[in-house]
């Protein structure tokens, strides 16, 4: 989202000095820890896939060339670790898409965070489940109660759509000095200042923006 344009020079330096595996690990941890689905790291995933393919080819060549089996097995281990990260990252996202299927389907913001393939998956998932519910249960209910999204026709909002619980608490660690606003309506202004490396249990909404800009990691 707004992450690239807002990135300061300090953030840029950490990006340059950080390997893709580190970035992938960060994305994986954030995705696992955040209650809602985060922006899909398209460029990062593409780079990781490329590197995985490259190493796979290299390993094949090494085997053909009769390179020391020890070296080959070490390369294989490194490859396995990166693949695990990538797979787990994508799977966590699929789990979240399934969990908040109907919410993702109608929320513009959530839609934009998905990759093209994930969008297709989300759409088909929601479609299939809706069809299944309709055929197996809803069609047999009184007319007022046939919506997948609403408890009954008199509900003004979609009150049967599970939404990510954004008031939940997460554990975070700051990468730089950050000052965050704790202020909410009906409260007095209050900020929390985090030094680099500080660990906090904190309400997700407060750090939402800082995660996106890479100032804070969830752990």
């Amino acid at each position: 989202m707004a992450s690239t344009s807002e990135m300061g020079s300090a953030d840029f330096e950490t990006l340059v000095s950080t390997s893709d595996v580190e970035l992938l690990k960060r994305a994986w941890r954030n995705e696992k820890a955040a209650p809602e689905i985060l922006q899909y790291e398209a460029a990062l995933v593409d780079r990781a896939k490329e590197q995985i393919e490259l190493v796979e080819e290299t390993i094949e060549e090494y085997v053909e060339d009769g390179i020391d089996p020890l070296v080959v097995s070490l390369y294989q281990m490194d490859l396995d670790r990166t693949q695990f990260l990538l797979r787990s990252y994508l799977r966590v996202r699929l789990l979240k898409i399934e969990k908040f299927m109907f919410h993702n389907h109608k929320s513009e913001e959530a839609q934009q965070r998905l990759s093209e393939q994930e969008k297709v998956f989300a759409k088909r998932c929601a479609g299939d489940l809706e069809k299944h519910f309709e055929e197996s249960v809803l069609v047999k209910l009184p007319e007022n109660y046939q919506s997948v999204l609403k408890q009954s026709l008199i509900s003004e909002v979609d009150d049967m759509v599970p939404q990510p619980h954004l008031d939940t608490f997460v554990v975070c660690r700051s990468n730089n000095f950050v000052s965050l606003n704790l202020y909410e309506e009906g409260e007095s202004p209050e900020t929390v200042e985090m030094e680099r490396g500080d660990l906090y249990f904190i309400r997700y909404k407060i750090v939402r923006g800082a995660i996106e800009s890479g100032k804070i990691d969830l752990i």
Partner: peptide
């Protein structure tokens, strides 16, 4: 809204997280 936990390790955080 924010509780600072200094020098707590990975395993320890993970253990108390669900409760906290």
């Amino acid at each position: 809204s924010a509780v600072k936990v200094s020098n707590v390790s990975a395993m320890e955080v993970n253990l108390v997280r669900p409760f906290v």
